[in-house]
Design a protein around this nucleic acid. Structure first.
Lengths: 342, 342
DNA sequence: CGTCTCGATGGGAGCGCTCCCATCTATGTT
DNA sequence: AACATAGATGGGAGCGCTCCCATCGAGACG
């Protein structure tokens, strides 16, 4: 009588309790897996839940627990494009796979304008999510520090620098680059150049380090002649390769810090009349779709992306359930995928 | 005293009211943009909100309004891969751009197993989101019908068939295919083949129709010889192209119903010693990353993907705010992007 | 056989908000 | 000047859940 609009109302916990012939408390205990429920009561409640098709109301639960049971996946502007890379979809697949077993929700948050950024900061400060996953964070991004300050559990994919203060999961970029260059050495290349990424990105520096280490291990001196810098775009890969060929026409191997730059380099090499891999062997990084569709297909360094997503989700869930725990870092191994370019 | 853990508590509406020297009702009215608030009160409330950094508690609001202020973006299993296509990221970018002005949240939901599907169905039935966006729905997917039955606002990208019962936004596949084939005709091609998609997918049938229409307009008879069927994978594109060449060695133009199949066809054409576009001109569909990285780059039909995302979001918001409104269909125009393959 | 203990249980309080109604004040009307 | 009217306002009720405390009952123990 006193419930207007009772028609079509979703069943509440109270309704379940009534049907099962128990109190609200007991139903709540069953739902939340408390051990102190008799077998009899549990069975009654479970069958009542099934019969009514009951699904707990998140909002009501949230209100009292002040958890939200949701985490945000934050993707900063410059990366919205990169979004199209398998990198992203694999991360998301990994994350979502882990969350599927929980009843955490995944909130997708793209940040384009500084206004949106502002809103997100406020939103996070108000603790409207339980944790944050950030993808492709730039070195100068202040968001992770904000997260740290407001004690919001967070995990980054990739780190901003050596001294990253927030938990992160990263691929072993140094080792990956090293293995790529070693592969070129094993093929017999002697004048190995690299198309490096922008030096203000940690990931780019790591890959450059790996390149240098591999050469050093072999006792080969690395000259600055052999290093050209791009910004991860195809155009920049082209330009870098042109510069390289001008300075060192004798180059016989190239390690590009990304597949897209490698694709650019490939075109320039072909234009210059060099055959790949016969005259110049070429290795990329990331094993993106691009790698499979260039001609010849690119040999590239694969990151365990889906596993990175899974690990990120797990770390975050841990941090959420044990607040105050130490930040954690995980670095996962890479793998060289051989195709025809080297 | 009676509030344990009051330290670090987020400000509530009550706190704002106290600071502004007004009642809770007035604060609520200001926040929700009610016109019946005096200028004086509004100003006081707004400055109090700013001072406290107040952000409304979604859960509390949800509980009483029984709206959730969130919508789900549902991505069925077979498509998780496709996720890596710009198609997806553009849709998401469009959707998220529109939602940014609202305070709707975007929930990302990948469905892999039938168990996850089950859970989603339950979740939706319990009306735990205000609306649903579905991407790449298969013809036999029962989810849209469920949505219809439970009166959950929903918008699909693409339709399942001519008689789609749920609102959708789609690209004009027929016209797109027609323009591709017209382009081949204009180039002088006379024996134009098509690598079609699986006939149980509506989108594939539309593209095939467009192909036929263009030929018919030109008075050219289309023979079954010139139609080979793939399943949108690269391998199937290769196989289809091989079959085509065997049946019709005289083929001088090919329209492939997707870029990935076109990439496969391209390899086979090259293997057979034919040059593209000189011996055989080739057009793809989708204008995906692949199109830019094949050799030669593919001429392809572009869909206005980001616009599709925006439109989907707008339709959905409309449906949410005016429940019971008629289902709506929007078909957006495509555009031929000329590159070197045709 | 009385008392103690401990697990299982029911239900009140309260999370932060919106909705709505009663109240109040300022203005218009006769 | 008395009254009607409308806009602005305050605050009670209640959304569905969890938390916690009081209570109950059954077995353990002296």
């Amino acid at each position: 009588m006193s419930q207007p609009g009772a028609v079509g109302r979703r069943p509440t916990l109270e309704a379940v309790a009534a049907l099962a012939g128990v109190g609200r408390g007991t139903v709540s205990r069953v739902i939340n897996g408390s051990p102190s429920v008799s077998e009899r009561a549990r069975a009654a409640v479970e069958s009542a839940i099934a019969e009514l098709g009951y699904v707990p109301n998140r909002a009501a639960r949230s209100l009292v627990t002040s958890r939200t049971d949701s985490i945000a996946l934050v993707i900063p502007e410059p990366e919205t494009r990169l979004f199209a890379e398998p990198y992203f979809s694999d991360i998301i697949r990994g994350v979502s796979g882990v969350l599927a077993d929980t009843d955490m929700q995944l909130l997708l948050t793209l940040i384009r304008t500084s206004h949106e950024r502002q809103r997100l900061a406020q939103y996070l400060t108000a603790h409207r999510v339980d944790g944050v996953l950030m993808v492709s964070v730039h070195e100068d991004d202040p968001l992770p520090d904000l997260l740290d300050r407001i004690e919001m559990p967070a995990v980054l994919s990739g780190r901003r620098s050596d001294l990253e203060s927030v938990s992160y999961v990263d691929a072993d970029n140094v080792a990956g680059a090293r293995s790529a260059v070693r592969h070129l050495l094993r093929r017999g290349c002697r004048a190995i150049a690299t198309v490096a990424g922008p030096p203000d990105m940690y990931v780019a520096r790591c890959r450059l380090d790996g390149y240098r280490q591999a050469l050093a291990e072999e006792g080969l001196e690395h000259s600055d002649d052999l290093v050209a810098t791009g910004d991860f775009t195809e155009d920049s890969g082209r330009a870098a390769m042109r510069a390289l060929l001008e300075r060192r026409p004798d180059v016989d191997g190239v390690f590009a810090a990304s597949d897209v730059m490698a694709a650019g380099a490939l075109l320039v090499l072909r234009e210059s009349g060099r055959s790949v891999p016969d005259d110049v062997a070429l290795v990329g990084f990331e094993d993106s779709v691009v790698a499979r569709h260039t001609d010849p297909p690119l040999t590239s360094v694969r990151q365990p992306t889906e596993e990175m997503g899974r690990t990120m989700a797990r770390l975050l869930l841990d941090e959420i359930s044990e607040p105050g725990r130490l930040r954690r870092q995980v670095v996962l191994p890479t793998e060289l995928v051989r195709r025809q370019s080297a």
